[in-house]
Structures are given as C-alpha cells and as structure tokens.
Simulated assay, not measured.
Amino acid sequence: MDRLQEIKDTLKNYKGETIRFMEVCGTHTAAISENGIPGMLSDNIKLISGPGCPVCVTVTAVIDRLTELSMEENTTVLTFGDLIRVKGSKYSLADARALGGSVEMLYSPMDAIRLALEHKDRNYVFAAIGFETTTPVYAMVLEEAIKRDVHNLKLLTSLKTMPQVIRWVCKNTNNVDGFIAPGHVAVVTGSDVFKELSEETGIPFVVTGFEGPQLLAAIYALTGMKDKAGIKNLYRSVVTEKGNLEAKEAVDKFFEPCDASWRGMGLIPGSGMRLKSEYAAYDAGSYGLDEDHMPPGCSCARVLTGEIAPNECPLFGKTCTPEDAHGACMVSTEGSCYNYYISGRTSKN
C-alpha cells in the first residue's frame, strides 16, 4: 500500500472523538472543494472555513467608498476580480458601473501604472484589497508610481494580516482543534509566525500547499497533533521559517500596522496595514472605513468564524446563489459559501 492510500484509509476510518480543523486561506477553501476532500474524511473529522478570503472580509464601508469614487467626475476605480460584484450597503461596483460609474477590472497590477501614464488627465483609484500575499504587490505599484512620477493614481486600501485574526478566532470561539495554515501567506511571512501562534494558543498548525495529496497530508498530520501545540511545515519547497525578506522590506517601506475592521468580526487591533504618513498623497481616503451592513438574514459573520456551515444560513441556495449573491462569501470563488454551493457539499464536513 502506498503512503497516500494509507493516509486516505486512516482519515476515512478515523473513529476518535470529533475534531475540527479550520483552513484560513481562500485558495485552500477552493482546493478542498475542487479535490472532493470532505468526502474522503470520516464523519468525525470536520473541516471549517475561516476568514481567509480577502474579498469576503472586506466591510461594506470600503465598497461604499469605492462606488462613490467611481461616480466622481474624471475618476476611474480599478479592481481585481470578484470585488466588483460584492455589495456595499446599497450598491456593488458592478451596480455603480451600470449607473454610469467608471470601473475597470485589472489583470495585472502594472496595468494601473500603464493606464495612469496613458491618461494623465484622469484620476485612478486602485482597490488595494488583500492579505500579506498581495500587500507586496501594492508596494511594487507604489515604487513604480514614484519612480515614474505618476501623480494621478491612488490606493484605497483594505489590507489585512493573518496572525491577529487567528488570535481573534481562538479567543472568541472554542471550536477549532487545528489550523491548516495559509500557504500563500506563509511564503511571505514564514512559518515562524504560526509557530508563535501555536505556542500562544496551544493549537497545532500545519503549513501546506494546494494539491489534493498535500491537503490530505496536512489533515492527517493535524489528526496526530490534537491537543498538542506545534507546527509542521509540509510546504518546504516554497515556505521557509523567516519568509520572503525582500517582500517584507518592500511592505515595511510603504506600510505600517494598524487596526482593521473585518466583516462580521468588527475592529481587530493590529490586524491591518495602512500607508505610512509620508505616502499619504497616494491614499484615496482609506482611514475610518469601519461600518459594515450585512444584508437582512445574511450569516456571513457566523460562516467566516466557523460557527456555522454555509448551508446552515437561511439564505443559502434560496435567495443567495452565485448568480444572485447576498453575502460576500457567495460572491468570491474563494468564499466558503460559493464553494459549498458549487460542490453540493453538506454540513457533514
């Protein structure tokens, strides 16, 4: 019997007490569904999705600010992917565009520089949303903007960091027995960040990649680490203990830690990054965007913290579907509601 089959058999036949593992990476959430991982596990191994989807944890005040900016004369909002469909307190960026606002989707961050240079008489606002993985990208954009003397491009930032929100989850819930640590984030931060978290919380962490066998290996490792603090790095091909020092230096040059508001969780001290004061000229009004208005009946807050499974939300699959999403977790392809819906996943795992 090969090692992978042995792992599969062990996980499927696990008969110990119920254990709950949380992934805090949107790409892991998608990969778990795409690979059919929940169906490979014992009923006593539960997988829950945490606040690892950057679009999903963006509060409505940020969306509202972006929609307002898109309606201003001579201003275009630039954004990646799923954010365009996430509703603010009233409108999404897609709605704003339909109402006459100027919104463009980007496929490369350097497109923001190109557009600003090509249309120097127009103002551009780049929606800078993400975690430690993408913050270096925005630092790179700023570096290039300064180098090329670009003055008609600003950032509207909603940048968040993982350690503090994981601490928040551990402090405010008692339903996590282990964490599948975010692989992409760990490339930048290094695995030592999660070693410190494990020592503080007494909960084990495993860093892993995004292939089906890698995820199964992580779950298998966590099953053997229950009630034991510690970290295993199963993604050593790209994750080191200290992380990407060059990326960290780029971020430290332009950004500093700040308090940040998370959808459904409120203000979490020290969980965000904002532009340093010397770069305030490149900020499009990011400070103080803390209000969050959930659609009536939406349970995103409880889903994001693993309190309930997505299909336990009363709107799931009824009035809330990927085609007509109410909550951000159903909009993003990294959102847990979206992935539950498209995979037909039940709350069993």
Rank of each mutant, 00 (worst) to 15 (best):
139 A>F: 06
107 Y>F: 15
330 M>G: 11
18 T>L: 07
112 A>K: 10
247 A>R: 12
134 T>H: 02
91 Y>R: 07
248 K>N: 03
97 R>L: 08
290 D>R: 07
53 C>Y: 07
183 G>M: 07
72 E>N: 11
212 G>T: 08
279 Y>M: 11
347 S>K: 15
330 M>H: 09
345 R>K: 14
320 C>S: 13
328 A>T: 04
10 T>M: 12
312 E>W: 02
138 Y>G: 04
277 S>Y: 10
3 R>Y: 10
303 V>L: 11
213 P>W: 09
41 L>R: 03
220 Y>L: 00
54 P>S: 11
68 E>T: 07
122 R>H: 14
98 A>I: 07
288 G>F: 03
283 D>M: 13
36 G>Y: 08
306 G>M: 12
137 V>T: 15
97 R>D: 05
32 I>A: 05
127 A>M: 03
191 S>H: 06
254 F>H: 13
303 V>A: 08
238 V>D: 08
175 N>P: 06
191 S>T: 08
274 R>F: 00
111 D>N: 14
44 N>H: 15
332 S>D: 10
291 E>Y: 08
268 I>G: 07
246 E>W: 02
272 G>E: 06
69 L>R: 01
106 L>H: 04
132 E>S: 08
204 P>I: 03
210 F>A: 01
175 N>T: 07
321 T>R: 04
262 W>S: 10
71 M>N: 09
258 C>W: 01
159 L>I: 11
47 L>N: 01
39 G>Y: 05
263 R>Q: 10
322 P>M: 14
60 T>K: 10
62 V>S: 03
339 N>G: 02
155 L>Q: 03
160 K>H: 07
38 P>W: 02
256 E>M: 13
59 V>A: 08
138 Y>N: 08
19 I>W: 00
265 M>S: 09
272 G>I: 05
247 A>D: 06
101 G>E: 01
104 E>I: 10
176 V>G: 01
247 A>G: 03
24 V>I: 14
230 G>I: 08
313 C>Y: 02
292 D>R: 02
319 T>D: 14
289 L>K: 06
162 M>G: 00
262 W>I: 05
316 F>E: 01
117 L>G: 13
155 L>I: 09
146 I>K: 15
31 A>V: 03
325 A>R: 05
35 N>P: 00
45 I>F: 04
88 G>S: 06
29 T>L: 12
287 Y>I: 12
105 M>T: 13
221 A>N: 04
247 A>I: 08
176 V>F: 06
212 G>Y: 06
